[in-house]
């Protein structure tokens, strides 16, 4: 059968792993600074930095559309909104001091982390790294190759794996690679009801925000 040409990322998987750990450290570091720093504005800036590191992780996870949406919405709008709020309110003069329940909060956080980590490592995930079936891997990373004789999928469901050679660009037609069109189709077809309700919710949020700020008792609008 010969060596299948898997997605070339296997060559540089060490770089991808190193990049993932770097951005994960940045994200967690930013989050820790958010909850410990006294100055609320600096906390907002660290939050924006954490969001940016998470966007980089989404790009590494091949979720390009979500990575871009994260930058656009979180870094470009929510962070600016929080910074605005901090600037206008001119918060508690001494900064945000930790409340008295610090030990209890830390205990709760540590317990939650322990529970989640335990669940994560003790579940038998069907991980792509554990899948040795090359047809399945080819399907996931978007490169299809031609050898249907030994594939269990060809026997079980009676279909065939689409064959494409290396030079055609059809190899990138996998839905998991170019996710924008597929997400759009999902939103319009399978998930159209939540999509419309989301529109309604955003309209309600807009009207609610305006109603909160337009106070007829005071003159300012």
């Amino acid at each position: 059968m010969g060596e299948p040409a898997l997605s070339g990322l296997y060559e540089v998987s060490r770089v991808v792993d190193a990049a993932f750990w770097l951005f994960a450290a940045l994200a967690i570091g930013g989050a820790v600074m958010v909850v410990t720093v006294k100055d609320v504005f600096k906390a907002a800036v660290f939050l924006a930095g954490s969001f940016l590191a998470l966007a980089a992780i989404y790009f590494l996870l091949q979720a390009e559309f979500i990575g871009v949406v994260q930058i656009l919405v979180y870094v470009g709008a929510v962070s600016i909104l929080i910074a605005f709020a901090v600037m206008i309110i001119a918060d508690v003069p001494g900064g945000s001091r930790p409340a008295r329940g610090r030990i209890a909060a830390a205990t709760a956080a540590a317990l939650m982390m322990a529970a989640l980590a335990f669940t994560t490592y003790n579940t038998n995930w069907t991980d792509i790294g554990q899948i040795t079936d090359e047809d399945a891997i080819a399907g996931l990373v978007g490169v299809y190759y031609e050898d249907t004789s030994t594939s269990p999928y060809a026997d079980a469901q009676g279909g065939t794996i689409r064959a494409a050679d290396e030079t055609t660009k059809d190899a990138r037609s996998g839905a998991l690679i170019d996710s924008t069109g597929a997400i759009g189709t999902l939103l319009i077809r399978e998930f159209v009801l939540p999509f419309e309700i989301l529109g309604l919710l955003l309209a309600a949020a807009l009207i609610g925000g305006l109603a909160l700020m337009l106070n007829p008792r005071t003159e300012d609008k």
Binding site: A48, F65, V68, I71, V75, I80, A83, D178
Partner: peptide
Amino acid sequence: NVGILFILAVTTMSGLAIVM
């Protein structure tokens, strides 16, 4: 694959720089 959306997203970051 999301080139133009990436450009739009990244240019909104300058707002945060101005606030800072």
